[in-house]
Structures are given as structure tokens and as C-alpha cells.
Amino acid sequence: MIELDHISKNYGARDSVSDVSFKVEQGAFCAIVGPSGSGKSTTLRMINRLIEPSAGTIRINGEDVAALPLEALRRRIGYAIQSVGLFPHWNVADNIATVPRLLKWPEERVQQRIDELLALLQLDPAIRTKFPHQLSGGQQQRIGVARALAADPEVLLMDEPFGALDPITRETARTELSRIHKSTGKTILFVTHDIDEALGLADKIALLRNGRLVQFGPPIELLTRPADEFVRDFMGGSSLGLKLLALRQVRERMKPEPASGEPIAPETSLAEALSQMVLRRTSRLPVGGTGGSANGSIALSDLVG
């Protein structure tokens, strides 16, 4: 669990972050969002003390981070950033092995861990001996994530890790991160300015503006009960309804009535179902499991809820 308790950071007279408090439960995926200059990165970087807060306390599993030795603290926290920052003079294996070697793991275990991580990130084992400049942007980013996860940290901090990727690679990277989060159960704090990225990945969103926490809660809550006009606009303004549809699945709204045509999966999002209705020019879609047999349907009126 990560707890930010009345955290502030000021540079001279200017407040970069002021009085931010929120709690992220063990295993949660929390997105810190906000416009540029809202203090999201500063907030994130105070957790591993790349920036020291001017006031307030940050606790990881109840321990005050300020009381821990700096290097020991950082070796417990994974950190991945947009510019990746792989060591250009080390090959992929050595880059991934950075923290395990700092922690003096036996070399055999280090090698084993590199293999595990390459498998987890679905990378070809032949990549081990490559140098960072020989990799594509997407591969570099994945190695960056592997390096951050290498010593099995309690917490993973990510600062717009997919910001520099092209839209298709970014989509793949998000899906992968979601899978990794589910399979490892790590607590993840993720900074992004892209609200769709936050809605797609996070189970908690902390929305910042001018260094202040405007709203903190599950995505649905920010969409349905925005704290103020700013939250409403930031969450999507007039397309807020569509974003809401994207968060819910067909199975929550389907009815046992029959319908004809190619069935869609119950896990399909309501937004996707709406899109299918428009494409197929129909107001009712069959819903089924795998194998194609429909066991219900969803109608346009069901989407409204």
C-alpha cells in the first residue's frame, strides 16, 4: 500500500504540488492524470525520492520512505520512464540485471530472472546480447519495463512510459502492461496525460490540476460523479457517455432474448457493441460464448442502461 499524506513540493514561492493525499491499495493500478504542469511527475518522483517533498509523508506498507536509506528504498521500487534511459554501453541482459546485481543476487538466479522477464514480456531470448541502439522504440520500452520489474519490486512507478511510441505499438504495450499487472499483482502508479490510457488501464484515478488533487476514485466515479466542471471537461466533456460505455461490458446488460447474426463476446465493451450496431445497421446484437452459439442478445436500448 502506498500512502501520500499531505504532500507538498515548492520551488521558491511557486507550489509545484500542494497538499496532495491519497492511498493506493496493494495490487491496485493507479493512474495519476492531469494537464501538463499539474505536478503529476513531481508527485510520482517524490515516491522514490528523486525529488524530496517540502512537506508531508509518503508511506509504503506503513514505512515512511524518508526514514529509509535512499539506495535501499529505490532498489525496492521499479521505475520506468518515457525516455527509457537504458544504459547504452550495456547489452539487454546486463541492463535488465542492474538491480538484481546491485542486490548481489547469485549470478545463476540473475540469469534465470532475465529469462523469466524476457518470457513475461514476450521477447525473443536472442535479444539478450543486443545493445539498446539496435532495438526498436517498442523493444527498448519493454526492456525498460523488464529492468524495472527485475528485482521483483513491491511497487512499479511509470512516468508516461508509452508516450514516445506510435499509436499501434502503444496499444500493444498497454494490453501487455494490463496482462503483466494481472499476472504479477504489482502495485502500479502510472503517470499519463491521456485520459483514455488511464481509463483503459487503471482501477483508481488521481486527477491533478495546478498541483492540487481535484478528485481521486475509480474511473466510473470520475465519469459519473465528476467533482467539478474541470473534471467533467478533462474526462471528455460531451463524449463522456461514450467513455462510460467503454468501461462497461456487454454481459452486464445482455438479455436472454434471441437475435440473428454473428454473435459478439460477452466481454465486449458497450462502446464496441454500439460501434458494431452502427456498422451492421441493427439495433440488436446476438451475444454468445466461443463456438458461435448465441445465448442472448443486447439491444440499443440496453446500452443506455
Binding site: E71, A72, R75, I77, F87, T98, L102, G144, R147
Partner: peptide
Amino acid sequence: EAGAAMGL
């Protein structure tokens, strides 16, 4: 920054 954040 990455190096510092890794705990070097």
C-alpha cells in the same frame, strides 16, 4: 535519472 532511480 534511470541509474539513480535503480538505486545506484
